[in-house]
Amino acid sequence: MSQAYLSISRVDMAFSRGGVTNPVLADVNLDIQRGEYISLIGHSGCGKSTVLNIVAGLLRATSGGVIVDGREVNAPGPDRALVFQNHSLLPWLTVYQNVEIAVQKIFQGKRSAAEQRDWILHNLEMVSMSHALDRLPAEISGGMKQRVGIARALAMEPKVLLLDEPFGALDALTRAHLQDEVMRIQSELHNTVMMITHDVDEAVLLSDRIVMMTNGPSATIGQVLDIDLPRPRDRLELADDARYTHYRHEVLSFLYEKQRKVEPIGSARARSAATAKRESAAMRA
């Protein structure tokens, strides 16, 4: 276990507001190998973004911790680049400048201005955005914004790439196109990726492993599914592949049978405890 590249160990997370604590995550454990592509799937509100934000360092876990490449995470940093669902480009900067702001900061003093420029252009090239360097985010489509967000993240040369529903806001065609692009980039760069998704097909197509989360409160990892499909993967060929269908079915049955009816005993107990606590708090109020 010690050779895991990214290791999430015994993470608990609770948000408290006005004296009421809301347990979101309980005992989340996950080890990820270098170069692995992991998808995180689960029902809305179970705490997927919270896990990702803890790995990013944007949130501090209530207890437990995250280790990336032997170093404990305690603040955000460019070694864990994040791509948000809503792209989060800075609207007053052009496509080029949106990548530049990160590259300048991260490589200042390490690379010359010319090298930085080449590196920015290279990353925008990789996501096929070279044609729109001087456009503002408001002037490009949603899919293009998401590409720039990915380019900005890749340009940080992160140890771990964190994607929070990167294609969630896109139409099906654009989404498929970007998925292919991410697969191609991944086959070149062998990044370590953690991606949140709601889309079962996307999870099976892209991942080496799918991590399925139980429903909150006190959500944890319910099941981990190894996706043993050869790469490069082609969505059309896979559509008829028996293993693909099997994996898909596994995830669907986790989401729509196990997480609907039978809950893991631990989480059910935690939930009833939490409800009891909330009720007694309400009575006192």
């Binding site: 944007l58 955000p76 460019p78 680049a81 989060s88 900061k105």
Partner: peptide, 14 residues
């Protein structure tokens, strides 16, 4: 200022 912009700044450590 949207939280996202702050987060971008935190990730690249401005």
């Amino acid at each position: 200022i949207p939280e996202d912009y702050r987060n971008v700044a935190r990730v690249i450590r401005l």
